[in-house]
Write a protein that binds this DNA or RNA. Structure first.
Length: 923
RNA sequence: GCCCGAAUGGUGGAAUGGUAGACACGAGGGACUUAAAAUCCCUUGGCCAUAGCGGCUGUGCGGGUUCGAGUCCCGCUUCGGGCACCA
């Protein structure tokens, strides 16, 4: 029969589904391998051809591993909570559950057609109560935990409470919101409210009055990674800083481990680097500066450059710093208040765009703890309240920000490094020899910066002026959202005290509308009887989008377990994700939160691996390739791209589905829109209308969306899969261009036609020739190496070459087809499955076949051809015996008739023979 | 500003320091066909030569290392990505 992709693929699919081929269970007799894709958010638009790129790559890898004897876990699910479904619900009143379910069905249908080897019995959706029960459970465990920094792990809150009862806060080194000091006696006399306040300071999930990113347009707060340049990532609405009571996760407690853990992961360097930047470790010192004339007060600062202590010419406080009110002198009060007001009225976005130097003198002076110099204390918004201590020592000579401030307010600049020119700008480099750095018992003069840094730290600690400290930029994650479509936070308020509500799942209630209430309460404020059975009010905020996606990979291991997130046996078998495929845009969101979440679960003994994703591959984005027609201004005439320069034209997007190889389908265009019905055209010399094109984001408004269903309909899933891989390296972003798909389609048909003719099967039992075996084994070698290296585009090319060779040799040997079918099974599973059954007569799935063994002996040649170059430039080839010695090769190269011409009477200086590579003759 | 990454034909892209441009698209030419589709064959980086053999040049720019550099090193340019008053 002719290659009929619809029939072939349907038959293969039916076979897989009827035989449950992709179901996977724990099997201790086989090694496991866990291949995971980042699960999609099911949007209303459905999948476009960009989405399956990563899924196809991971599916190839999963199938390859399975063919190599691994027990492969390869699941798929849906990240179902999120803003678009809720926005849609607000507009239409339709329950987000319904639209979400519809979207998921559509996604499933689309995915089903592409032939993935997912075990659908393990699917999860984050909005199922049976699933989010475990999201809520993890939250409560965080609520009941604190981070013991001396032990380097999370511990149960009960340990901490016991310690407080016995020793107070003495001897506790915890990750905390602020340093607390109290005795056991004080603890014992505290009432429930006071104790709650103390414990909130330590809990890993805690309620705090924090400065948050508030987005009025979305009506919710956002995490740092959901904000970019002062605008919400979703929607692009302005975000303001606001102080609000919010649930937070103490992610910062894990900053050090999150950073160090990166070293052992097989992730791309760029992604690791992005996470390192985001976590932002800086090592330095915290120091106290006394306030002149105020024995009751000292200012604590953080600096990474304690070596520049002699260059401090002023100090700066963040506007929000509590010190500001305490030290401002009476005569400066009005000026300071005015400044604070002006700052308060600027939004975050205005501050970012307009980076003027602003600030005000407080009237107070601080004392340099080493040199004893008196220095003025200023307030400026270039110092951030949320980092370090919210106060800095300013060293204008060696910090560009301090320098700008000093120049603007005419404050002194003292250079500390020999030869540093600070007349125009600061000298920020950590190189050079120290000068002007002696006093108070410390002498850094003559030292290198690195030595001075070490010496200054030693001195500061020895004299008790401060202590060495590591700070991280990573902030705690705000965990409250003022939205409906998310997991309820399982907390109730008993006499105003937040208390765990542990009858899980706490199901999302029905409400009449999805907007916040009139009095500003989140939408859950509309739910009737949103109380515990005892009548205590439940939390009205819901969890953020990243909550449900932080541990979903664990749930796939044991998706129907109602007793635990994952059973110990399932966790011990599947352990962690071996290969994770997804977009790099999750670098500072999901991939940080998941790692944090997993490390916490590891600390409490719920999982046995510290890191969730061992190897990670970032697939590139598929961009759209938009097509344009050119309308001549004020007419209804369209001019072809190559002639448009002669006219004054307006480019108009046209649907790429009406364009083939940049040639516009004119009848389709005329019926596309009423206004184009009587369009006229100026065609090219070939009588066709050629469209222009540009690479843009794939989106409906650009009319450049290519739907995988259409591709499957026209070419079949196998062709789509091969073509997506053929397009280029998986990691690389590239525009989708349907133009090349015909080549892959041709290849598939050629492959098919080699073994089928009309209704006849052409497979025979002939002995394959040495040539075809060579061709086959070259392919085995290449494809195996390529899949291991996650490089699929060159594999597809290798298949094309091999099949061309087989077709030319008319080789239809079973001995060749059998390994060939297995080799191509990861790429074109439908085709492979049918060949396996029909042409080869097997009664089991190709998925259970063994990966073909590569044998070097088929590639061994008796003679080899070597290029001979003169001074590196190749001139001619020689053929020698494969086992010829260097001397023989050299002799053969010089004996060749062509040698004379290139030697041209010159003497041979040197001959380099690289066995199997090249002969280079230097003359 | 800081930190990554990239740059190769008309296009997508191949090349463990060893014959640059595999494979595919597109284009041009040809075969088959009443015709179309499908299929097959040839050419296809540039320049020169061409009856035929062939020659020169060429991987963003400038240097360097090497017998030999798209690949390694130094200095630029451009484009993408991340972080960004983080002291």
């Amino acid at each position: 029969m002719e290659y009929n992709h619809k029939e072939i693929e349907q038959r293969a699919r039916r076979y897989w589904e009827e035989n449950d081929v992709y179901r996977v269970e724990i099997d201790k007799s086989r090694p496991k391998y866990y291949v995971l894709d980042m699960f999609p958010y099911p949007s209303g638009a459905g999948l476009h051809v960009g989405h399956p790129l990563g899924y196809i790559a991971s599916d190839i890898y999963a199938r390859y591993k399975r063919l190599n004897g691994f027990n492969v876990l390869h699941p798929m699910g849906f990240d179902a909570y999120g803003l678009p479904a809720e926005q849609y619900a607000i507009q239409t009143g339709q329950h987000p559950e319904i639209t979400t379910r519809q979207n998921i069905e559509r996604y499933c249908e689309q995915l089903r057609k592409i032939g993935f080897s997912f075990d659908w019995s393990r699917t999860v959706r984050t909005c199922d109560p049976a699933y989010y029960k475990w999201t809520q459970w993890a939250f409560l465990r965080m609520f009941d935990s604190w981070y013991d920094r001396s032990a380097g792990r999370a511990r149960a809150l009960s340990d901490l409470i016991a310690h407080f009862g016995a020793h107070g806060s003495e001897g506790i080194d915890a990750a905390q919101t602020k340093q607390l000091n109290f005795t056991a006696e004080q603890w014992k006399t505290m009432d429930a409210a006071a104790r709650n306040e103390v414990l909130m300071n330590y809990r890993l999930a805690y309620l705090a009055n924090a400065i948050v990113n508030w987005c009025p347009k979305l009506g919710t707060v956002l995490a740092n990674d959901e904000v970019c340049e002062g605008l919400s990532v979703r929607g692009g609405y302005p975000v303001e800083q606001k102080k609000m009571w919010q649930w937070c996760l103490r992610v910062s407690a894990y900053a050090g481990r999150l950073l160090d853990g990166l070293d052992n992961l097989q992730w791309s360097d760029s992604l690791k680097e992005t996470q390192r930047n985001w976590i932002g470790r800086s090592q330095g010192a915290e120091m106290r500066f006394a306030v002149d004339g105020r024995s009751d007060l000292s200012l604590e600062i953080f600096t990474t450059r304690p070596d520049t202590i002699f260059g401090v010419t002023f100090m700066v406080l963040a506007p929000e710093s509590k010190y500001v009110q305490q030290i401002t002198t009476t005569d400066r009060r009005t000026a300071v208040d005015e400044y604070l007001d002006s700052i308060r009225n600027r939004t975050e976005r205005e501050r970012m765009i307009d980076r003027r130097v602003t600030g005000v003198f407080t009237g107070a002076y601080a004392v340099n703890p080493v040199s004893g110099a008196k220095i003025p204390v200023w307030v400026s918004d270039y110092v951030l309240a949320g980092y370090g201590t919210g106060a800095i020592m300013a060293v204008p000579a060696h910090d560009s920000r301090d320098y700008a401030f000093a120049r603007h307010f005419d404050l002194p600049v003292i250079p500390l490094i020999e030869g540093a020119d600070v007349s125009e700008s600061s000298y920020d480099a950590k190189e050079g020899t120290m000068i002007n750095s002696c006093g108070g018992g410390l002498d850094l003069n003559g030292m290198s910066v690195a030595d001075a840094l070490a010496e200054a730290k030693r001195f500061i600690e020895a004299r008790g002026l401060g202590k060495v400290k590591t700070n991280y930029r990573l902030r705690d994650a705000i965990f409250s959202r003022q939205r409906y479509w998310g997991e309820p936070i399982p907390v109730c308020y008993v006499d105003g005290i937040p208390t765990a509500y542990d009858r899980l799942p706490l199901e999302l209630p029905e409400i009449d509308k999805y907007l916040p209430t009139e009095n500003g309460e989140p939408p859950l404020g509309r739910a009737k009887d949103w109380n515990t059975p005892e009548g205590y009010p439940l939390e009205l905020n819901t969890m953020p989008g990243f909550a449900g996606s932080s541990a979903y990979y664990l749930r796939y291991m044991d998706p129907h377990n109602d007793e635990a997130l994952v059973s110990e046996s399932a966790d011990e078998y599947w352990r962690q994700v071996d290969l994770y495929v997804g977009g790099a845009e999750h670098a500072t969101g999901h991939l940080i939160y998941s790692r944090f979440w997993n490390k916490f679960l590891y600390d409490i003994g719920a999982v046995c691996e510290d890191e969730p994703f061992r190897k990670l591959v970032n697939q590139g984005m598929i961009q759209g390739r938009s097509s344009f027609v050119y309308r001549i201004k004020d007419t209804n005439t369209f001019v072809t791209a190559e002639k448009r320069d002669a006219y004054d034209t307006t480019p108009i997007h046209v649907d790429v589905n009406m364009v083939s190889n940049d040639i516009l389908d004119l009848p389709a265009f005329k019926t596309w829109r009423p206004e184009f019905a009587d369009a006229e055209f100026i065609l090219g010399d070939d009588g066709r209308y050629t469209c222009g094109w540009a690479v843009e984001k794939m989106s409906k408004s650009m009319y450049n969306v290519v739907n995988p269903d259409d591709m499957v309909e026209r070419y079949g899933a196998d062709t789509l899969r091969l073509y997506e891989m053929f397009l280029g390296p998986v990691e690389q972003s590239k525009p989708w261009d349907t133009n090349g798909i015909d080549g892959v389609f041709r290849f598939i048909r050629k492959f098919w036609n080699l073994y089928y003719k009309a209704d006849e099967l052409l497979v025979d039992d002939s002995e394959p020739s040495a040539e075809t075996l060579k061709s086959l084994h070259k392919l085995i070698k290449k494809v195996t190496a390529d899949i291991e290296a996650f490089s699929f585009n060159t594999s597809v090319a290798a298949f094309m070459i091999c099949v061309n060779e087989l077709a030319a040799a008319k080789c239809r040997s079973r001995q060749v087809l059998e390994p060939l079918a297995v080799l191509i099974a990861p790429f074109a599973p439908h085709l492979a499955e049918l060949l396996w059954h029909d042409a080869l007569g097997h009664d089991y799935t190709v998925c259970d076949a063994p990966w073909p063994a590569f044998d070097e002996k088929y590639l061994v040649e008796s003679t080899i051809t070597l290029p001979v170059s003169f001074n590196g430039k190749t001139r001619y080839n020689i053929t020698v015996a494969a086992d010829a010695s260097r001397e023989d090769v050299q002799a053969a190269a010089l004996a060749d008739p062509a040698a004379e011409k290139w030697l041209d009477g010159k003497a041979v200086k040197k001959v380099i023979v690289v066995p199997g590579r090249i002969v280079n003759i230097v003359v």
